[in-house]
């Protein structure tokens, strides 16, 4: 008995050790691959332009916050962030407001054409923004919304409303229907029940949907750039303008990029377990 356990143990060890090591190694390499480009951007944002174009270094020799100071003191730069955040917030509120009742309807009732409607919503999430860029431009110009925050917020509902409906529906299906029925028996009216009882139950779902609406509106460039000129110009668009100009200031560009990453990076920890769910439209 003793001899068999002794012969088995070393065998098991040689089998398990390299496997663990390989997995960790792959993971570490992958994370390095993820982080190096971001590190490079952060590094450049801490350098002066002369240092960036002068000598090639792996880390900043004289770290400086001047690039950030340029952005945060120049209205033409920081207004880009204000504009972006404005339309993103309008869009998130609008999307959630219309998606909540709709998701409830889809999760609780069968009605005429429900499946077709659900599918039609999905096609909007999948629609290429390039197809919509020109008609949006003309539509919003003709109703006098061009270059307003509302125009971009409305345009982004194209893909955010379907996303919010799908995510919320996924969460609402998990709430047992008996809760609705009990509330109605207790004499709650529908709006009262929905706001007082149902919404707290799916609070995490609302949070996740809000996060994804915020994010997809924040990362989009084509529509927001097409629909704005000066007053509502998003930060992303201001950045591309700098790229196309000659003799650009790489340090400021990098700092602007770093500042656009921060909003996502701040809240990502809270939604880490729902990231897959959000990207897969509430399924998974």
């Amino acid at each position: 008995m003793a001899t068999t356990s002794e012969t088995l143990r070393p065998a098991a060890r040689t089998f398990s050790l390299p496997k663990v090591r390989l997995g960790t190694l792959v993971m570490v390499l992958y994370l390095i691959f993820m982080l190096v480009p971001i590190y490079w951007l952060v590094k450049m944002s801490l350098q002066t332009n002369r240092e960036i174009t002068g000598v090639f270094t792996l880390w900043p020799q004289n770290p400086t916050l001047d690039n950030y100071r340029v952005i945060l003191t120049d209205a033409s730069w920081y207004m880009g962030y204000v504009n972006s955040i404005t339309y993103v917030v309008i869009n998130t509120l609008l999307s959630l407001a219309v998606a909540l009742p709709a998701a409830y309807a889809f999760s609780r009732y069968r009605f005429l054409g429900d499946k077709h409607l659900f599918f039609w919503l999905l096609t909007n999430r999948m629609a290429p923004p390039a197809v919509f860029a020109l008609p949006f431009f003309q539509l919003y110009s003709s109703v006098g919304l061009f270059d307003t925050h509302l125009a971009v917020a409305l345009a982004h509902t194209l893909f955010n409303v379907p996303l919010a409906v799908w995510i919320l529906e996924g969460f609402m299906r998990g709430v047992p229907k008996e809760i609705d029925e009990t509330a109605y028996i207790d004499g709650y009216s529908f709006p009262h029940f929905f706001v007082k009882i149902f919404m707290p139950l799916i609070a995490s779902g609302i949070g996740v949907a809000a996060f994804f609406c915020f994010m997809f509106s924040w990362v989009e460039l084509l529509l927001s750039r097409t629909l704005t000129a000066v007053n509502a110009q998003p930060i992303a668009s201001i950045m591309t303008r700098t790229v196309s100009a000659s003799g650009l200031d790489w340090g400021v560009l990098a700092a602007a990029g770093v500042l656009t990453i921060i909003p996502g990076a701040l809240v990502i920890y809270f939604v880490r377990n729902y990231i897959a769910k959000g990207f897969a439209l509430g399924r998974v």
């Binding site: 992958y30 994370l31 993820m34 982080l35 480009p37 971001i38 490079w40 951007l41 450049m44 960036i52 174009t53 090639f56 994010m215 924040w218 990362v219 989009e220 460039l221 992303a236 950045m239 591309t240 790229v243 790489w250 560009l253 990098a254 990029g257 656009t260 990453i261 996502g264 990076a265 990502i268 920890y269 880490r272 377990n273 990231i275 990207f279």
Partner: peptide, 27 residues
């Protein structure tokens, strides 16, 4: 989870900018 999800949350034009810079031979 958090580190892997980082690139997913970066505005798409910043992703482009990052790689445009990263691929340049001078900087």
């Amino acid at each position: 989870l958090v580190l892997m999800a980082l690139p997913l949350l970066i505005p798409w034009n910043v992703v482009g900018t990052i790689w445009q810079i990263l691929g340049r031979t001078d900087i």
